[in-house]
């Protein structure tokens, strides 16, 4: 690994994220396999001789999704890293399509913490960091312990409050005089 892309020193997500991802992969697999029952039934009903055993299609789908998914979960946990720098937050992710994202603390508009039912049961919180003008989160860290997430949030927001001095425009220019309309 060359110097630029070296993220081995960066922080991992919480260990439970692996569990969370494995569970959601299983759920996805079961749901998709459930849908695959319909074509299976139709084909077996219409074809005279179906060479495979009943419910072969959903089973294959399930094995494929879960098999691939469980492998990717492990890899993707290894690749998902973040680092809180002096004045920025960096997040690296991706197994096949890799990306490294850098946000300056003074660009952060707001930070969201959210967690679904399974994540809550595992004590995980999803941190999303938003910058100006972008609809989606600029970077997100999908699983820290509640304590870590709150620490990160307070660090990000406190730091940005210290870096940004009060708005220069509102501080220096007095608000415009009340309006005087010709025909109020």
């Amino acid at each position: 690994m060359n110097g630029a892309t070296d993220i081995s020193g960066w922080k991992h997500l919480h260990e439970n994220v692996r569990k969370l991802w494995r569970i959601s992969n299983l759920i996805t697999g079961v749901v998709v396999a459930g849908f695959a029952v319909i074509p299976d039934l139709i084909i077996r009903k219409s074809a005279d001789k179906w060479p495979l055993f009943p419910f072969a299609i959903p089973l294959v789908v399930l094995v494929l999704i879960v098999g691939l998914g469980q492998w990717i979960v492990g890899r993707s946990f290894e690749c998902y890293r973040y680092e809180l720098g002096e004045d920025d937050l960096a997040v690296a992710k991706g197994v096949f399509w890799k990306s490294w994202r850098f946000v300056n603390r003074n660009r952060i508009q707001h930070v969201d913490l959210s967690s679904g039912p399974i994540a809550r049961a595992l004590g995980l919180v999803h941190v999303s960091v938003f910058v100006g003008g972008m609809q989606a989160a600029a970077v997100s860290i999908p699983g820290l312990s509640t304590h870590d997430a709150e620490m990160l949030r307070s660090k990000l927001i406190k730091a940005s409050a210290e870096v940004i001095p009060p708005d220069p425009m509102s501080a220096t220019t007095p608000p415009p005089a009340p309006p005087e309309f010709p025909n109020g």
Partner: peptide, 9 residues
């Protein structure tokens, strides 16, 4: 606002 580097396979 945001700098990112990405790499496809």
């Amino acid at each position: 606002q945001l700098v990112s580097v990405s790499q496809s396979p």
